[in-house]
Design a protein around this nucleic acid. Structure first.
Length: 713
DNA sequence: TCTCACACCTTTGAAGTGG
DNA sequence: CCACTTCAAAGGTGTGAGA
């Protein structure tokens, strides 16, 4: 065990100063042998070829670990999550950086659309080639230090450990979740940028794609793709890292924001017509499927109507005029239902009803979101391409002038917005990630969410308040990270835990999806990149970094499993749930020890329960973690050693420095949002669904009839 | 339940045109 | 040289058949 740390080569390598060197533990080996499923841990597997060449310092340990895993016959994703329970060893203590205090607030953009999406069923299509998120995940940031540089990123983590099925027009739990896919961090392409830049625009992550394919035929997976399991529930998370260097991602002030309304169930094919219609109505690329238009859908419907009429006429001729009085023939009714599943319950809301973010950081018009929404006035000018400016406000959506249904939706949307606290006003939660272990955040009552409860939960978010988590690493210094470079080819993977984890953001460099960003960061990764590149694992040499898309841009250069392995071998901190800690090692280790002592106490942190009771943060029981070298807890980061969190009376949890005795961040606070998450009753939901079904049926018939009348007088 | 080919659509950028 | 238009390619989308 701990071969990594004992390897002098490693110690002397570019990784020498890396504070987070994972140690393989007996639990890991045992778990691997038992074939425990790793909900969060990255895959460790040999490349298809079976051959792997890694250079110098990193090569040996990587290969050792790799072969060790390979010997077990384990390949992704069959590693035990215990593997992530790495014991970290601080190698160097750094001086904190000077920073100007900031107080970031994050507001979800397009909240109305998200809420409508959520009310209708929370389905998100994933395909082998990857599909964009819809609704697009966009946020607006405020309270940033204008001059400081930030890296903005997001990831998608499991919301629970259940597999779902769509049965009787509703989502039900269908069993235990499949093994977690290797997760990734998606870096906003504009990262890093100053706070002023971030605040001047809507931060859009629409370029991120969702897939169920762990790799393409070549064994790669695009850097922009996040791998999900179909029929599983996921929760996107947004992160703000106050740093301009990806090297420091673990050592900077790190905040995590969760918007409960953005969770979704990944599907490979739509199950719920309501969601289909919602997306058709609001996504310009699906314009051809809209009922109101000249698209294929309309043509098909018209053809069907014509055939239906001819059939009706034939029936009339055969049966006489006995039923002429009935305006609605049963057959027509049936058709109306069957052919127009898309007819929305309350009428398809217009884009403008939802889109208040016409000036997203990226080309937003393609998102098909409303550009002249009610909030458009508050949209500030983007610092990016001007097309964003011209695109949206002026460009009216083709359907923006349609029915009044939009106003209805808008109305409800506003109501919802009223009911919920503005996310900007929500206190920023700052807690120690070590305290946010998996099941800490789950409500006791939801540990094993019964299907019913879960169903209700999925649509019972009357008000959504972002949950935010801030971690302060103690600002480890530059020098410390000097050699902490990420191989260019290793930038695609991340192995995150459940949201449940809410875990300290356990980040693995190789899991980064930089999506073209960080080209400037590449320069700083030279040493390690060069070190790793010689092995020919992939194009990891520094020269390759000239192209962001080939270097930091993503995982294109390395199979994800290999990336993950290399990443793991690099000694990045991995929580018991596979996420990465932004904390100094000792801080985490201390907490880990405490957790271990408490024996799965990780599930029961009162604060975390309060923060987000609806989520299960760790469906997988934690084995008691061993701390092979207890001295590690106090060596490197004395200021953090023994540091923990101070739980305030109102649920606020603040990381406390044991040395200073003061909170690490004055803004640290946690506010319980449990009340805002209180679900509707199932009865209410059912009633609402029933009403919606009726409305939909009626409106569908009406619209169909109207169209048929107008279409063929 | 998933995959694939397909038609339809938007977006993008190069090429062409005119002042 | 600039602004504008045109056009083709790329890419995003749901559908429906088939596995």
């Amino acid at each position: 065990m701990n071969f990594l740390m004992r390897d002098p080569v490693i110690q002397g390598s570019s990784m020498a100063y890396h504070p987070f060197i994972p140690h393989r533990s007996p639990e890991f080996a045992m778990s691997a042998m038992l074939g425990h499923q790793p909900p969060f841990f990255p895959a460790l597997a040999l490349p298809p070829s079976g051959s792997l060449s890694l250079p110098g310092a990193l090569g040996k340990p990587i290969m050792d670990q790799l072969m060790g895993v390979a010997d077990t016959g384990l390949h992704f994703p069959t590693l035990g999550h215990q593997a992530a329970a790495a014991h970290l060893r601080p190698l160097k203590t750094l001086e904190p950086e000077e920073e100007v205090e900031d107080d970031p607030k994050v507001q979800l953009e397009g909240k109305e659309l998200w809420e409508l999406f959520h009310k209708r069923g929370t389905e998100m299509v994933i395909t082998k080639s990857g599909r964009r998120m819809f609704p697009p995940f966009k946020v607006r940031c405020t309270g940033l230090d204008k001059k400081a540089k930030y890296i903005l990123l997001m990831d998608i983590v499991s919301a629970d450990d259940c597999r779902y099925k769509f049965h009787n027009s509703r989502w039900m739990v269908a069993g235990k979740a499949d093994p977690e896919m290797p997760k990734r961090l998606y870096f906003h392409p504009d990262s890093p940028a100053t706070g002023e830049q971030w605040m001047s625009k809507v931060v859009n992550f629409h370029k991120m794609k969702l897939t169920n394919n762990i790799s393409d035929k070549h064994g790669f997976v695009s850097s922009t793709h996040t791998i999900l399991n179909s029929m599983h529930k996921y929760q996107p998370r947004f992160h703000i890292a106050r740093t301009n260097d990806v090297h420091k991602l673990y050592h900077c002030t790190f905040r995590t924001y969760v918007f409960p309304e953005t969770d979704f169930i990944a599907v490979t094919a739509y199950q719920n017509d309501k969601i289909t219609q919602l997306k058709i109505d609001h996504n310009p690329f699906a314009k051809g499927f809209r009922d109101t238009g000249n698209g294929r859908r309309e043509k098909r419907k018209q053809l069907a109507l014509q055939s239906m009429r001819s059939y009706e006429e034939q029936v009339k001729r055969e049966n006489g005029a006995s039923d002429d009085s009935s305006g609605e023939q049963p057959s027509f009714k049936c058709y109306g239902q069957a052919s127009s599943p898309a007819v929305s319950t309350v009428g398809p809301p217009h884009l403008k009803d939802f889109c208040d973010s016409d000036e997203d950081s990226d080309d937003e018009s393609k998102d098909g979101l409303p550009k002249d929404g009610p909030d458009s006035s508050k949209i500030s000018t983007t610092t990016e391409d001007g097309k964003d400016h011209e695109a949206s406000p002026v460009k009216a959506h083709p359907f923006s002038s349609s029915s009044d249904s939009g106003s209805r939706v808008r109305e409800s949307g506003h109501k919802t917005e009223k009911s919920q606290a503005d996310s900007r006003q929500s206190p920023v939660t700052i807690i120690s990630s070590t305290t946010r272990s998996a099941e800490d955040l789950k409500s006791p009552g939801l540990q094993d969410p019964p299907p019913k409860a879960d169903e209700c939960r999925s649509i019972s978010k009357d008000s959504f308040v972002p949950l935010s988590v801030q971690t302060d690493s103690g600002h480890m210094g530059h020098g410390h990270l000097h050699n902490f470079g990420f191989p260019t080819g290793l930038t695609g993977q991340q192995f995150f835990n459940h949201l449940g984890g809410a875990h300290p953001f356990l980040l693995h460099p190789g899991q980064f999806n930089m999506g073209g960003a960080f080209s400037n960061m590449a320069a700083g990764m030279g040493p390690l990149l060069a070190a790793v590149s010689t092995g020919g694992v992939s194009t990891m040499d520094t020269t390759s970094m000239t192209s962001p898309t080939q270097s930091l841009a993503g995982a294109a250069g390395l199979p994800f499993h290999l990336q993950q392995h290399v990443l793991a071998s690099q000694g990045l901190a991995m929580s018991p749930f596979g996420s990465l800690f932004p904390y100094p090692y000792t801080y985490m280790a201390a907490a880990a020890a405490a957790q271990s002592a408490a024996s799965s106490s990780v599930h029961r942190h009162p604060f975390l329960n309060a923060v987000r009771p609806r989520l299960r943060y760790s469906p997988y029981p934690l084995p008691s973690m061993t701390v092979p070298d207890s001295t590690l807890l106090t060596t490197a980061m004395p200021s953090m050693a023994g540091g923990g969190v101070e739980v305030k009376g109102d649920g606020m949890v603040v990381p406390v420095s044991p040395v200073s005795g003061v909170t690490l961040d004055s803004t640290s606070e946690v506010t319980s949002h449990s009340s805002s998450l209180s679900p509707k009753t199932c009865a209410e939901k059912d009633a609402a669904n029933e009403l919606q079904s009726i409305q939909r049926l009626v409106s569908g018939l009406d619209s169909s009839q109207d169209r048929s009348r107008s279409g063929s007088p």
